[in-house]
Design a protein around this nucleic acid. Structure first.
Length: 568
RNA sequence: CGGGACGUAGCGCAGCUUGGUAGCGCACCUGAUUUGGGAUCAGGUGGUCGCAGGUUCAAAUCCUGUCGUCCCGACCA
């Protein structure tokens, strides 16, 4: 490719709306242009990178028995009504009507479509396992698209769906994808970490997220300093650092605590540490009020709570709800004497002795409250938000925190969709069984953005070699030097003959402009043909990532570059 | 969806308070000089000031509505 013909309009200035590095550099290097909020055009350079990422994905999917197909982007409402997600998915589902007024949506994911197909055409255990995937545009009408390609409303995703006969077979599919994902992100040259994750609205029984480590990541990861434990902070289990409490149970008392509405107020007023208090929070879970108890210094993790309650909708109760059902106001709610409301407690609560909680009476709290003796708990569960510094739930080591970009996620779905969409097969004994499914996604654009977040400097992008849009740029310093132009051209042609992906910067620009653009776009190697070295019959070969410069004879430059690329 | 900000040339911005000729830098085009890290000089192209109403002799500027964009939060297969 000749730079004079390459459509890569670079910008000197950063567009005001680009907030993070990858977005800024993709805009500046002419890789992407915004067409609407969260909707981008991939320009030629970006598309080359994405095709490389997609090819790596294809190779690894195929290696694990995946078969590529292509499903429609437009999906009829009936499929979603059948799975129950038409009503559950909410506003993120991009809905539309056809000319007859029939409901459709733009696919945010494809469980409904693929499961329907498989249900119709696969009837025997002999046809399983089946692993089908596509690389396709997905639509999610995000409330808040942001950070360029990181969170778009239209984006390209690889999604594979596995169909197996039982849980053991699903485990094999899951492990196969885990391996494939590890290979994919490794081959893309990324530093990443698989972490345990929440299953979210997709439902199912196990999940890992593949997090590309980067400061700008939206997700927090907690990982153990000692063992292999790593989890998304939103689901990380909480190890307990609670000393077993030997305190003698004392008599319960009601105390006057005017204006103590928060735990801090209360602890300050009573001169006790927040750990002695039992925080009581009222939630509305699918219209049922529940009381959640947790140690005063802890934070409730609403994802854990939602999972523990197995509810679809979870909200904090309003002051009105609390007054109506509990007969007391926010800040003074407590479990003692409470009737008709389900009480959930975090794992730490049953072990507390002589705690402090609301008295269900304005301006009063109870001290020396003891679980079991003073109130009963309907359900205990791990409900608190784990934090860095806490003990690892598996080995007791210390949890550390890191930030990551969720580039891929794998799920065990179980039979959630095979049940609703009727995906069944006959086993050896002729009995009908539900297929057991898994689904596995990778965001292609997000992976590209993540690669930039992890590999850049003040001058621009430093592509991992495996996904670099081109490998070499040949730069004649002066476009008026016949000799330089000719030497550059000959090196360029030699590289092209060797099938090395090369750009020749033949533009009528000053050298500074070409160098700046080369660094910005991030070609791994730059061959500079200039008067300084040409006098000795040599050219410079510069490595973008390290800055090292090799002086090489003109005739050997192409071979040298080819060799050097193999070592990167 | 709650809070905040913004919309003037392809990009970055000024002008708006106090209504009266639409401006600067970069980019782009022409010419000259220049050529190893985003050149200089001269000349030039390009804007219904997001859109729609209203007030006014007169609106980028004031008022109303509307659309769009970004940030924080909530949310997120």
């Amino acid at each position: 490719m000749r730079a004079s013909q390459l459509f890569a309009p670079t910008l000197r200035e950063v567009p005001a709306e680009a907030e993070i590095v990858s977005h800024q550099l993709m805009m500046r290097s002419g890789m992407i242009r915004k067409t609407a909020s969260g909707v981008y055009t991939y320009m030629p350079i970006a598309w080359r990178v994405m095709k490389k990422i997609m090819n790596i994905i294809r190779e690894e999917m195929d290696a694990e028995g995946g078969q590529e197909l292509m499903m429609p982007g437009v999906q009829p409402a009936e499929l979603w009504l059948k799975s129950g997600r038409w009503d559950v998915y909410g506003e993120e589902l991009w809905r539309l009507k056809d000319r007859h007024g029939r409901d459709f949506c733009l696919g945010p994911t494809h469980e409904e479509v693929i499961t329907t197909i498989v249900a119709g055409d696969v009837k025997s255990y002999r046809d399983l396992p089946l692993r089908l995937y596509q690389i396709q545009t997905k639509y999610r009408d995000e409330r808040r698209p942001r950070f360029g390609l990181m969170r778009g409303r239209e984006f390209i995703m690889k999604d594979l769906y596995s169909f197996d006969r039982d849980d053991a077979a699903l485990e094999e599919s899951y492990q196969a994808m885990y391996r494939a994902y590890t290979n994919i992100f490794t081959r893309c040259g990324l530093k990443f970490r698989p972490v345990q994750a929440d299953n979210g609205a997709i439902g199912g029984t196990a999940s890992h997220e593949f997090m590309v480590l980067a400061q700008s990541g939206e997700a927090e990861i907690l990982y153990c300093s000692e063992c292999r434990y790593a989890a998304s902070a939103e689901i990380a289990q909480s190890g307990s650092d609670q000393e077993s409490n030997k305190e003698e149970a004392k008599n319960r008392e009601e105390v006057y605590t005017p204006d103590c509405k928060t735990i801090d107020d209360l602890a300050g007023f009573l001169k006790i540490s927040p750990e002695k208090t039992i925080k009581a929070l009222c939630y509305k879970a699918d219209d049922e009020l529940v009381l959640v108890l947790i140690r005063g210094d802890r934070t409730v993790n609403e994802i854990k709570l939602k999972n523990a309650l197995a509810c679809l909708d979870l909200q904090m109760a309003t002051d009105e709800d609390i007054t109506r059902v509990m007969g007391s106001s926010m800040g003074f709610v407590g479990p003692v004497g409470l009737k008709g409301v389900k009480i959930l407690a975090d794992l730490e609560v049953p072990n507390m002795t002589n705690g402090v909680c609301g008295a269900n009476k304005k301006d009063y709290h109870l001290i020396n409250v003891n679980p079991d003796r003073d109130f009963s708990i309907d359900q205990t569960a791990d409900l608190r938000l784990a934090k860095a510094g806490e003990p690892c739930p598996e080995c007791g080591g210390k949890l550390l925190s890191a930030r990551g970009i969720e580039a891929g996620q794998i799920f065990k779905l179980g039979n959630k969709y095979s049940k609703s969409m009727g995906a069944k097969y006959l086993d050896e004994t002729g009995r009908e069984q539900l297929m057991v499914m898994g689904c596995y996604g990778i965001g292609v654009g997000r992976t590209m953005a993540a690669a930039i977040e992890q590999n850049f400097d003040d001058d621009g992008i430093i592509w991992p070699i495996s996904i670099a849009p081109y490998h070499v740029v040949v730069v004649p310093v002066s476009d008026r030097s016949e000799e330089q132009v000719q030497v550059a051209e000959s090196i360029y042609l030699k590289l092209i003959n060797k099938k090395v992906e090369t750009v020749c910067d033949d533009r009528k620009e000053r050298p500074g402009v070409k160098f700046k653009d080369a660094d910005l776009i991030g070609y791994p190697l730059r061959i500079t043909v200039g008067s300084k070295t040409l006098a000795e019959g040599k050219v410079e070969v510069k490595v973008r990532s390290t800055g090292e410069v090799h002086l090489v004879e003109v005739g050997k430059a192409a071979d040298f570059a080819e060799q050097l690329l193999k070592e990167l």
